[in-house]
Simulated scan of single mutants.
Amino acid sequence: MPDLAALAVHPACPDAATGPEAQALRGELARADWSGAPAQLAEFARAASARVPARFKPRKERPAEVSWYAYFSAHRDACREIGSADKREIVNLLMAGLDPETALRRYLAAKADYEAGSAIR
Rank of each mutant, 00 (worst) to 15 (best):
W34G: 04
A30H: 13
H75W: 07
A22K: 03
L104H: 03
P2C: 07
L7Q: 06
I120R: 15
P63M: 00
E43R: 08
Y107L: 04
R80A: 11
D15T: 01
A16M: 07
A17F: 02
A96F: 07
A17M: 02
E43W: 06
D113T: 05
G83T: 03
E61L: 14
L104M: 05
Q23L: 13
L98S: 09
A5Y: 07
E65N: 09
M95Q: 07
Q40W: 07
S35R: 08
P100W: 03
R88L: 12
S73A: 10
L98R: 08
A109Y: 09
A85V: 13
R121G: 12
R106S: 09
Y71W: 11
S73I: 11
P20K: 12
D99I: 03
R62F: 04
S118I: 06
I90E: 04
R55I: 12
K111F: 02
I82W: 01
P63Q: 07
F44G: 02
K87E: 14
A32K: 06
D99S: 03
F56E: 04
K57G: 10
L98A: 07
P100D: 01
S118W: 08
L4P: 05
D99R: 00
E101A: 01
R121M: 14
V66T: 11
D15S: 06
K87D: 12
E115N: 00
L94Y: 02
P58R: 04
N92A: 13
A112L: 12
R76I: 05
T102W: 09
E115T: 00
L94M: 11
L108Y: 01
A112P: 05
A16S: 15
D33G: 00
P2I: 10
A74R: 10
E21L: 12
E89D: 14
L94S: 00
R76A: 15
A112Q: 09
P100Q: 03
K111D: 12
G36E: 15
A32V: 03
P20H: 13
P58L: 02
A119Y: 00
A12M: 10
R106H: 11
I90L: 09
L41K: 08
P14I: 00
P11N: 07
D113C: 02
S67K: 14
P20N: 14
L7P: 02
A5R: 15
A37V: 09
I120C: 10
F72R: 01
D3S: 06
K87C: 13
A42I: 05
A42V: 01
A24P: 01
R62S: 15
V52L: 09
G83E: 14
I82K: 01
A5G: 09
G27Y: 06
E61R: 11
S118D: 13
S118H: 09
E81R: 04
F72H: 02
